[in-house]
Design a protein around this nucleic acid. Structure first.
Length: 274
DNA sequence: GTGTCATGCGTAT
DNA sequence: TACGCCTGACACG
């Protein structure tokens, strides 16, 4: 269940194993049989992530687009690999490595024009555009009367943030998630952007989402934080805030659950209706 | 075994 | 706003 950091990490780690090598491809589940037949025997020339999307480039010009959706998962390992699950959408192997993809929302061949259209619909990616994404984010939020919580999930506003990061980033920024997006001061939007760059890059490096500062939990490094100690507010309804002990609140005003601390993220500005 | 839920998103109503 | 899609982990009986 991936946010943008997972896709950037996949591009980096899969790139090491698969770029520059011919691949055998198949679709045990059958739903990508034609595409797998087209790609079989081709050489991968590059793997790129943008937001939550992944693009594999092949030497005959084909482009494979993968979006994991809510359930999609990669398994990557060195050969020999176990039998693929019967619902594997795509299995890809070199002489030494094995990739197994199950449950994606999208696994399809697309044209360069389709890739351009798709990318044009995405906001700035904190991992790809750390330096100049803030201006773009400010522009894209300036006319939105939706809440900042809803805006951060909209991939047209910013690409790669999902439901975990949006709650955690707004906690770190001290902003209530139901705050009207266009009511935010430019410096507050810049702050959200800077925090998203740090958080997603950290997530990409570690392969998991850790937003809690290690010293707040009495350990040296984020890697030492146990499951359950890594996040400030996500899925912590009723638990004491790690900073002020106030019970964490939750709402699903926009169809997805969002969590916040009522003291650390006060209602100081315009809120959208609950 | 069954039911529920989940880090997503497009389409229909 | 609701639903459909796709899978796996976990709680419960």
């Amino acid at each position: 269940m991936p946010e943008g950091h997972v896709l950037h990490r996949a591009a980096r780690l899969q790139g090491r194993r698969f770029c520059g090598k011919p691949v055998w491809t198949s679709s045990p589940q059958g739903r990508f049989a034609d595409g797998a037949a087209t790609l079989n025997g081709q050489t991968i020339t590059g793997i790129d992530a943008l937001g939550k999307h992944l693009f594999y480039r092949f030497d005959e010009g084909d482009i494979l687009h993968v979006h994991l959706g809510l359930f999609g998962k990669f398994r990557v390992r060195s050969l020999p690999a176990p039998e693929p699950s019967p619902n594997a959408r795509l299995v890809m192997e070199t002489a030494t490595d094995h990739l197994h993809l199950a449950g994606p929302t999208a696994c399809e061949l697309i044209t360069p024009e389709e890739e351009d259209d798709l990318c044009a619909r995405l906001g700035p990616d904190p991992i790809l555009d750390p330096a100049d994404g803030a201006d773009e984010l400010r522009r894209r939020l300036s006319r939105r009367s939706i809440s900042i919580g809803a805006a951060l999930l909209d991939q047209k506003v910013v690409a790669g943030i999902g439901n975990v990061y949006r709650s955690e980033l707004l906690f770190l920024a001290g902003i209530h998630p139901l705050t009207v997006a266009k009511a935010l001061e430019p410096w507050a939007i810049d702050d959200i952007w800077r925090r998203s760059v740090v958080a997603l890059k950290d997530g990409e490096k570690m392969g998991k989402i850790v937003t809690v500062l290690p010293d707040e939990m009495g350990v040296e490094s984020p890697r030492e934080l146990k499951r359950g100690d890594r996040l400030y507010v996500y899925k912590r309804t009723g638990a004491p805030c790690r900073r002020c002990a106030e019970p964490i609140e939750t709402s699903n005003a926009d169809g997805r659950n969002v969590w916040w601390c009522p003291i650390c993220q006060p209602e100081t500005m315009d809120l959208v209706a609950r």
